[in-house]
Write a protein that binds this DNA or RNA. Structure first.
Lengths: 208, 208
DNA sequence: GTCTATAATTCGATAGAC
DNA sequence: GTCTATCGAATTATAGAC
């Protein structure tokens, strides 16, 4: 490996600061100059390492998705190979738990990551699509397994019901840390309670 | 009244175009020059009539809230004075129906308005607060009447459950017109079906 | 009320030395 | 890989004539 002693190399430092600023201010509200100022690096470095503002954004999205999507799919994999379809509660826990547990497992960085995930999926077009396509695979798998759990509902019905679950996930993640939110801090207890509540709420709606 | 024969005066024209662009591109992604170009007015006109970009934004929010909030409160008023508390389904219909019926009642302008309402409530801080405070009154009233319908749940519980309903409303409005969305067009039939589905979904969750 | 002209910044991006 | 310097364009906002 290169630079084994480097605590935080330039590229990673830019990614970290960019993730926070994109999360707080959105794509359009974030400036490269603001990022490099907080990151303590040169303006030319971001173009050297990433090429453009949009490519930096995609790099942040990819790093997040690479952590979150496999966690969801692994959780889901426990049920996919069973002959008996899982309960909707099991499916929804596989949906909500991985992104929410990021918060308590990663500390301060987890709250930032949560806010970013919530923010990026509500961006105006065409920026939103840069994130959506990274989560499409996971979304399809959840739709497939929901279809097994509810064979008497049409795929279109399950599609928009899953969209409502996504709406709830996005908002909950985006508002993390704000007072009066379901998740105000990043303690493990708080996160686990939130998961249980979200799973129950959405599961009831899915059955309707 | 002034200028009775003016089909669309400058101020209203700016508001209309600004609402569309804020809805599509968000606050940070919208430029005054883009607005005045599409509106066919002068750049100085927006400062003369509104003062600044942020004050223009607030003017758009106020015009929307002035239409939507009274509609919700009037719908809710039918139940507030009864000795018998209304069902969750009634409350949630008062919550979802007015903003969604805007879409079918206002035609093309209704779809834009829906997207704006969804967008403005998901803006980064501090812009989001400019909208939130206009909807706070309505939100409190819904919380009060939910407390009457569910006297055995704590106010904090009902608070975050209402937040989940808001999350669903925001996302549904913001994605109006996108393919695969719950509301793809603006026909009255489509909107009424969506209202019924949302009410059922959320009401089940509220009871959980 | 509407217009032109422009001030004063800030933006993303690049060239080229080291 | 990192830096300085800068380009060209775009931004909000204002001053002042009409």
């Amino acid at each position: 490996m290169k630079h084994a002693l480097t605590v935080t190399d330039t590229k990673e430092q830019i990614l970290n600061v960019a993730e926070r600023q994109f999360a707080e201010k959105g794509f359009a509200g974030t400036t490269l100059r603001g990022v490099i100022r907080e990151a303590g690096v040169n303006i030319a470095a971001v173009h050297y390492h990433f090429g453009s503002k949009e490519e930096l954004y995609v790099a942040v999205v990819r790093r997040v998705a690479k952590q979150m999507v496999p966690a969801q799919l692994q959780h889901l994999g426990k049920y996919e190979n069973l002959k008996q379809p899982p309960s909707v509660e099991n499916i929804m826990e596989a949906f909500f738990a991985p992104p929410l547990r990021m918060i308590s497992q990663m500390g301060e960085a987890g709250m930032i990551r949560a806010q970013f995930v919530g923010r990026c999926r509500g961006e105006p077009l065409p920026i939103q699509q840069l994130a959506d396509r990274e989560f499409d695979e996971s979304q399809q798998r959840f739709l497939d397994i929901l279809q097994r759990a509810f064979p008497d509902q049409t795929r279109l019905q399950l599609k928009w019901k899953l969209d409502l679950a996504i709406a709830i996930l996005i908002r909950t993640l985006n508002q993390v840390g704000q007072s009066d939110n379901l998740i105000g801090g990043n303690s493990s207890e708080e996160v686990e309670i939130a998961i249980e509540r979200l799973v129950k709420f959405v599961s009831q709606g899915m059955k309707a």
